[in-house]
């Protein structure tokens, strides 16, 4: 699914990613751990094709993600620090906009009820069905983050990238996110997630990669204790 080889990225003269080699196979749920400034978000942005690395190779689903990023974008969903939703639009309008941008068929997945039914289904899945027609600026932080998850999944991507998805979430929103991630795992989707919430964020994770100073320092089976991971990642 993801084959990254010798990925290096500089911001000015400062190396942010140094020679990162990473393989994630289809259906894996991989957590990227590390202290602040380790390069986790930059690595996720490189995989999301938002940032081009200065060196290295990146293949996603067999396609060259550096030479032809538009080929792989349709298969990636991203939940980042920011929600990427328009506060003055309603949840339905936001998802309709992204459905158009991803070229989803207007007839929808069932070809009976149309894309609107898919959008409502996506919103109910993140428990926003009753607020679907309210402007996003009236939502709480947790609701915005749930909408952001619905946005990332609207095109049913085989690869989901999550950047610190539990940050600022209340208990309900975190539980919704965990349930969606478990569902992704059951469906055999691939998930790559950065997190520093070692105790809450590692449910269902099949492998953990620790990054420090832009380099991969450890690769771990996720059944290690949170304390041990904490010790290695900090």
């Amino acid at each position: 699914m993801i084959e990254a080889a010798n990925i290096t990225k500089f911001y000015g003269m400062r190396p942010v990613l140094r020679d990162i080699t990473l393989q994630v196979t289809s259906g894996e749920f991989v957590a990227i751990l590390g202290p602040n400034g380790a390069g986790k978000t930059t690595l996720l942005k490189v995989v999301a094709t938002l940032i081009k690395p200065d060196h290295g190779r990146l293949r996603i689903n067999g396609a060259d993600a550096i030479a032809d990023p538009s080929l792989v974008r349709a298969g990636i969903g991203v939940v980042s620090h920011q929600s990427l939703v328009y506060p003055d639009l309603t949840a339905v309008e936001n998802l309709r906009f992204y459905a158009d941008m991803y070229g989803l068929p207007r007839s929808g997945s069932t070809r009976i009820q149309g894309i609107e039914a898919d959008i409502m289904e996506a919103l109910k899945r993140v428990d926003l069905g009753r607020r679907a027609h309210d402007p996003v600026r009236t939502y709480s932080r947790g609701m915005v983050q749930r909408l952001s998850i619905a946005r990332a999944l609207i095109h049913n991507p085989p690869l989901l990238l999550l950047d610190e998805p539990y940050t600022g979430l209340d208990h309900t929103s975190a539980a919704t996110l965990s349930a969606i991630l478990r569902e992704m795992a059951v469906k055999g989707r691939t998930v790559l997630m950065t997190t520093h919430e070692y105790r809450r964020g590692l449910d269902g994770v099949t492998r953990a990669i620790i990054i420090k100073g832009g380099k991969v320092t450890h690769e771990l089976a996720a059944d290690l204790s949170a304390e041990k991971i904490d010790q290695l990642a900090s």
Partner: peptide
Amino acid sequence: VNQCIEGLLLAPC
């Protein structure tokens, strides 16, 4: 606002 430009950049267009 909310880095929506990233949402546009992530779209396959």
